[in-house]
Measured scan of single mutants.
Amino acid sequence: RTRTSFTAEQLYRLEMEFQRCQYVVGRERTELARQLNLSETQVKVWFQNRRTKQKK
């Protein structure tokens, strides 16, 4: 599997969503992935990694 390189715009949007809600599921995840031109899996994993980073 190749590592995803997020654009600055994608990271900004993901961070904004994370500040709003640390868990994104269902339709929200589908819509966010579509808007950012990413897969739902990429969005899901980004949120998982971001929550892990916050715990440290």
Rank of each mutant, 00 (worst) to 15 (best):
R1V: 10
T2V: 14
T2H: 05
R3S: 15
R3N: 15
T4I: 08
T4W: 10
T4P: 11
S5Q: 13
F6E: 03
T7N: 10
A8E: 12
A8K: 05
E9A: 07
Q10K: 03
Q10T: 11
Q10A: 08
Q10G: 02
L11R: 03
L11H: 13
Y12N: 15
Y12E: 15
R13P: 01
R13G: 08
R13K: 12
L14M: 05
L14C: 04
L14K: 01
L14E: 02
L14S: 00
E15T: 03
E15K: 03
E15N: 03
E15C: 01
M16N: 05
M16T: 11
E17G: 02
E17W: 05
E17I: 03
E17K: 03
F18A: 02
F18W: 08
F18L: 00
F18R: 01
Q19V: 09
Q19N: 10
R20K: 04
R20A: 08
R20D: 14
C21N: 14
C21M: 04
C21P: 07
C21W: 03
Q22I: 05
Q22H: 07
Y23V: 11
Y23G: 08
Y23F: 11
Y23P: 01
V24Q: 03
V25T: 11
V25E: 15
G26A: 09
G26N: 06
R27A: 14
R27H: 07
E28A: 06
T30R: 04
E31C: 02
E31L: 04
L32W: 00
L32T: 01
A33M: 00
A33Y: 02
R34F: 02
R34P: 00
R34G: 12
R34L: 07
Q35M: 11
Q35E: 12
L36T: 07
N37Y: 01
L38T: 05
L38C: 08
L38N: 00
S39F: 04
E40R: 03
E40H: 00
E40F: 00
E40D: 10
E40L: 02
T41L: 13
T41V: 10
T41W: 10
T41R: 06
K44D: 14
K44H: 07
K44P: 00
K44N: 12
V45N: 07
W46A: 00
W46Y: 11
W46H: 07
W46R: 01
Q48H: 04
Q48N: 05
Q48T: 11
Q48A: 09
N49K: 12
N49W: 10
R50I: 00
R50C: 04
R51V: 06
R51I: 13
R51A: 06
R51M: 06
R51D: 09
K53G: 12
K53S: 15
K53W: 12
K53E: 15
K53H: 08
K53F: 15
K53V: 14
Q54Y: 06
K55R: 08
K55P: 13
K56Y: 12
K56C: 14
